[in-house]
C-alpha cells in the first residue's frame, strides 16, 4: 500500500474546522467539536455518540427541535396524525402525586443493547460501530416487529408514499424509520439538527458529543451531575440521557 499523502486532507480539515468554529461561535461553549472523520473512513467504536438533554431548560410550548428535525429530514405532516412518522416529539410530563410538570424531547435513545436490533428478522435494524442505531431500508421488509419491541415508541412506519425526499435522508413507503442522530450530518462533523436548533433558540437544553471521550463536554457533565436514562430498569445502556426528570 502506498503511503497516504495527508497534506491535502489536513488542509481541508483545517479549513473545515476554521469555518465550523466561526459559524458555531455563539454556542461554542456548549458543543463538542466532533473530530473530523474523513469521508472514506468507516465509523469506529472508538467513538460513541450520545446526547444529554436537560429537561429543566426545556420550555413546555417550545417545539424547535421537532421543527428542525422535520425540516432536515423531510418528515412532514400529511394531515394523518395517527400514521404520520414522528422521529422526535415533545412529551409533557406531570408527576401524579406532586403535580410537578415538565417537558422533554423523546427520540430514539440509541441504546447499546437495542431491543429493536435483537428482534429484526432480516438484520435491517442495526447498531453502527459508533453507537448510532439505524434502519437499513434496503433490507427492511416492513414487518414492524421493531416498533413492537421499542420501549420508547421511537420508531415509525411510513404509511404513505413520499416524494421529494432530502437526498441526504432517503426514506420511503413500507419501511420503518426513526431518529438517525442526523447521521448524515454527524459524519460531516456537524451536530444533529435538533441540537443546533435548540442552541440557536438559546434554550441550550440539548448537548451532543462523544461519550467515549472523557474530555468531551458531555462526558464531563455526566461525570459531574446526576443524569438518568429513561427506563433504566431495562438496562439498555442508552446513548441519550436526561437531567431533571
Amino acid at each position: 500500500m502506498s503511503k497516504v499523502d495527508n497534506s491535502r486532507r489536513n488542509f481541508i480539515g483545517a479549513g473545515a474546522v476554521a469555518t465550523a468554529g466561526l459559524v458555531i461561535a455563539p454556542g461554542v461553549t456548549l458543543f463538542d467539536m466532533a473530530n473530523a472523520k474523513p469521508a472514506g473512513e468507516a465509523a469506529s467504536s472508538a467513538k460513541r455518540w450520545g446526547m444529554l438533554i436537560d429537561s429543566s431548560k426545556c420550555t413546555p410550548g417550545c417545539n424547535d427541535c421537532v421543527t428542525a428535525c422535520g425540516k432536515e429530514n423531510g418528515v412532514a405532516s400529511t394531515g394523518h396524525p395517527q400514521t404520520d412518522p414522528q422521529w422526535i416529539r415533545k412529551i409533557e410530563l406531570k408527576e401524579l402525586k406532586s403535580g410537578r410538570s415538565h417537558s422533554l424531547p423523546m427520540m430514539c435513545q440509541h441504546c447499546a443493547e437495542p431491543p429493536c436490533v435483537d428482534v429484526c428478522p432480516t438484520g435491517a435494524s442495526f447498531k453502527r460501530a459508533d453507537g448510532i442505531v439505524l434502519v437499513d431500508r434496503h433490507i427492511c421488509i416492513g414487518c414492524r416487529y421493531c416498533m413492537m419491541a421499542c420501549p420508547y415508541k421511537a420508531r415509525s412506519f411510513v404509511h404513505e408514499e413520499h416524494h421529494d425526499q432530502n437526498p441526504d435522508v432517503p426514506r420511503g413507503k413500507g419501511c420503518v424509520e426513526a431518529c438517525t442522530l442526523c447521521v448524515h450530518r454527524v459524519d460531516n462533523d456537524q451536530q444533529p439538527a435538533c441540537v443546533e436548533a435548540c442552541a440557536a433558540g438559546n434554550k441550550d437544553a440539548m448537548l451532543f458529543g462523544d461519550l467515549n471521550d472523557p474530555n468531551s463536554e458531555i462526558s464531563k457533565r455526566i461525570a459531574t451531575y446526576a443524569t438518568t436514562q429513561v427506563r433504566a430498569d431495562l438496562a439498555l445502556n442508552t446513548g441519550v440521557r436526561y437531567q431533571g426528570i
Binding site: C120, T122, G123, C140, I141, K173, V176
Partner: peptide, 25 residues
C-alpha cells in the same frame, strides 16, 4: 401484510438469528 412484500426474497436470504421472527421463518 408486510410493508414491503416484494422483499420476500430478502427475508429468505438475510437472517438475524437473534430474532425469533427469523427462527420462525
Amino acid at each position: 401484510d408486510l410493508g414491503r412484500p416484494d422483499r420476500l426474497i430478502v427475508a429468505m436470504t438475510h437472517y438475524n438469528f437473534k430474532s425469533v421472527f427469523a427462527l420462525n421463518v
